[in-house]
Computed example of a mutant assay.
Amino acid sequence: MSEFQAKLDAIAAERVARQDLISRRVAASLADSRTRTGDLTAAAAATVQRLVEQAARAKTAAGWELREKPDPNAALGMAFEDPEMSTEPTNRHASPPRPPARRGRHARMEDAEDDYSTKDWLG
């Protein structure tokens, strides 16, 4: 009977040792995962910030972002009824956005000769 008890004790000790080993592996894996997740999050945030700044620079360089002049009538106390008429964009030569392509059965192909959006009418 003592032989049987010794075998049971050995099996129990081995089970405890295996469980301890598994617990240590899981803890190490979780710590490694947290570290890598933190690194990836920081890298993704830096990439998003860089892309936002790049898009803002491209938007400004392309002329889509229209900066407004200060209203000359503000000092006089006069105001326009339409607030969009009170200011004018500083970049007069920026091309307007292209209209969406026409669709339908009778739509004709766009011809570069018909495009006057880039023509400088002032110069």
Rank of each mutant, 00 (worst) to 15 (best):
F4M: 09
L66F: 06
P70F: 02
F4K: 13
A10R: 14
R98P: 10
G38C: 08
E14T: 08
W121K: 11
E3K: 06
Q5A: 08
S33G: 08
L40W: 02
P83I: 02
E113L: 08
A17P: 02
E68A: 15
Q19K: 13
E88V: 15
A56L: 10
D120A: 07
A10M: 11
R36L: 11
L30Q: 14
S86C: 02
P96G: 01
D71K: 05
T87A: 12
A43Y: 01
R57T: 10
E113F: 05
V26T: 11
G77Y: 05
T118M: 04
E65C: 05
T41W: 00
S29A: 15
Y116I: 06
D32R: 11
R103A: 05
A61Q: 08
K59R: 15
E81D: 10
G77T: 03
A56W: 05
A13F: 05
D20T: 05
L8A: 14
P97K: 08
S117I: 02
E84S: 12
A43E: 10
M85R: 15
R98V: 11
R102N: 03
E113I: 05
H93A: 13
P89R: 08
S2W: 03
A56K: 13
D71G: 03
D120C: 08
W121N: 11
A12D: 11
S86K: 04
E68H: 15
E65F: 08
F4A: 11
A55D: 10
A94M: 02
Q54I: 02
A75H: 11
R25D: 06
D111R: 08
E65Y: 10
I22L: 13
V52L: 10
E81K: 13
S86E: 00
D71T: 02
P99C: 01
S86D: 01
G77V: 07
M1W: 02
D115E: 08
G38S: 12
D114S: 05
H106R: 06
D20R: 03
A112Q: 09
K59W: 10
A45V: 06
L51E: 12
A12V: 13
A27H: 07
R25W: 01
R36D: 03
T35D: 14
A27Y: 04
E3G: 11
G77N: 04
R103S: 07
A56G: 03
A112I: 05
M78D: 01
A13L: 12
S33K: 13
A27M: 09
V52H: 05
A42V: 12
R50K: 09
V16W: 00
R50N: 06
E14D: 09
A42M: 13
R34Q: 14
R18I: 10
A44T: 09
R108D: 02
A43L: 09
D82L: 01
E53R: 10
P72K: 12
K69C: 12
D71Q: 04
G104C: 01
T90K: 10
R25S: 03
W64T: 15
L66V: 07
H106E: 00
P89G: 11
K7H: 13
P97R: 08
W121Y: 14
T37S: 07
G38F: 04
E84W: 10
P99W: 00
A56M: 08
M1I: 03
P96I: 01
A6Y: 14
R24W: 07
E68P: 14
